[in-house]
Design a protein around this nucleic acid. Structure first.
Lengths: 290, 290
DNA sequence: CATGTGGTGTTATATTTTTTTCACTATTGT
DNA sequence: ACAATAGTGAAAAAAATATAACACCACATG
């Protein structure tokens, strides 16, 4: 279904000839800065177009609306749709599946999450987080919870190649207090905490913070309480048509960050990666890429 | 030129911490489809956000507006300004960052991956894979490699709640041959193998196949050699502007599949989840959602 | 365990906004 | 030139919307 729906703007233009003088004057005023002016009160619009109040009321009825409020409601709908549209060039993602198929609905939700999340991220903060993560003068601790430890592990796996001095802590393990003994001022914690937020993680964050460590937090749109302690925090939208939350958005941020950190430390990383390659070749763990 | 003017969205964002529960709920609702919802009547907004009318009135005052009308007026001004802005603002994901910023480039690539991958997925095959995964008459083995074990673990964590008889095998561990002893005809293997494809994983797949097990494979666009043995295989595009491959697309598929399996087994899952909830409540591992 | 405070929703009041009514004006056709 | 008609706006009536006042509940504090 490719939105064959006429926009209100279209409707006004197509009926332009059937309108009277004052109405045309009004129509042009509406189109002048569309749709903003149509979303204000009727009286303001009338004043702006230098026509009388009833003229406005009559015209919207002429356009087929029951009244001014309905006209506004449709304008807002249009605006809403427009905000979603630029991304959804495909109305279905999995071709050959109806748009109600979970594959399409799920993907829609994820794309929505991407849009919302990225719209709220401050690039400067992101860059800061990357710089912090690239600083090998301080130890880097990566902390995940019950579910999020998979994200933490993913980050850990990559960071391990990029830089030294990393520790992966699972807040669900009761061994974590031991790790905190060695924490020094200026060390960095990358913490994952999505709902349901875990008490262990909060405690850990508090203690790390008290020791003067810096905190980067990956959380969801509702924000873990750790957020108050964090130097940088990224809130991802994670709602999908499922009983569970989605980890796609946090993972996307994570991978972007990994890539960025990699760039920042390329000089050192290069050597480390080559070394790793050699080791892999020797152990013959992998097949040669054909 | 970076908009010295704070948008209302920014203002809400920055004050998010000073807001109360209901107000935050409202704030998210406003940002949900911004700015459309804020341009409607106060009562509609309240209903939409599931808060009371006065909560809305109070919040806009908290944000520094004299009242709801003024709030709306400024929203409209913002909209007007945006419409006038010559540059097409929405071809970037992270607003406020140049389109060359890694955040935007990376996201572009990921969306591209989504399009390509889903375009090639046969919904019927996907549904088949879900049905197979939902069948509790057979044991389910989940197999991941060096990096992909994080994906495997993620799947395992969720499947564990949904259904019984699951085992998570890491092909990098040398204990895996032991697991194969118990494999019966008709058992299901969900295997992750992305480049660099791992010999261990291939061996494991071959042996499982020989024992009459069914195989579902998550791989990349170039396809792991396991592909020849698999009953269903999903090839994700994984190229991103990074030294590493992206796991976002496979994760997206995975989550969709989890959701689908959950739906198929809802009758049983429901009980399992409630039981789990109780156990969590008792251990007080998590904070109550505030 | 009482007591206070901050947050929230329900109900009531005030205000604004929209619609209707009606009188006036301009335009067109006879 | 003179109806007749359609178009327009001022003002009043009706409807809706926003603000204020109050009461309740939950939670924290002593």
């Amino acid at each position: 279904m490719t939105e064959a729906v006429l926009t209100i703007s279209d409707r006004i233009q197509s009926q332009l000839d059937d309108l009277t003088r004052a109405e045309r004057q009004l129509a042009h005023s509406i189109l002048e800065n569309y749709p903003a002016s149509g979303l204000g009160p009727l009286s303001a619009l009338a004043k702006d177009a230098e026509v009388s109040v009833p003229t406005v009321a009559r015209m919207v009825q002429k356009l087929g609306f029951s009244g001014y409020p309905e006209f506004q409601t449709e304008l807002r709908e249009e605006l809403k749709a427009k905000a979603k549209n630029p991304i959804a060039k495909h109305d279905t993602w999995a071709e050959g599946a109806p748009s109600e198929h979970l594959l399409n609905r799920f993907t829609d939700a994820v794309i929505d999450n991407v849009r919302h999340t990225l719209g709220q991220i401050d690039p400067a903060e992101f860059d800061l987080a990357c710089r912090l993560s690239a600083d090998t003068n301080h130890h880097l601790y990566i902390v995940g919870g019950r579910v999020t430890h998979t994200l933490a592990e993913y980050l850990f796996l990559h960071m391990q190649v990029i830089r030294p001095h990393i520790t992966h802590i699972e807040s669900t393990s009761n061994a974590w207090p031991h790790y905190l003994l060695d924490v020094k001022e200026g060390d960095l914690f990358i913490i994952f905490d999505m709902r349901r937020y875990e008490n262990n993680t909060l405690k850990l964050a508090e203690m790390a913070h008290a020791k003067g460590a810096k905190l980067i937090l990956f959380t969801d749109q509702w924000r873990s309480p750790v957020h108050h302690l964090a130097d940088v925090s990224f809130s991802s939208r994670i709602v999908v048509p499922s009983a569970w939350d989605s980890a796609v958005m946090p993972l996307l941020l994570l991978e972007t960050m990994i890539s960025s950190v990699q760039n920042l430390t390329w000089g050192d990383t290069k050597d480390r990666m080559e070394e790793l390659e050699d080791m892999f070749d020797q152990t013959k763990l992998f097949r040669k890429f054909t």
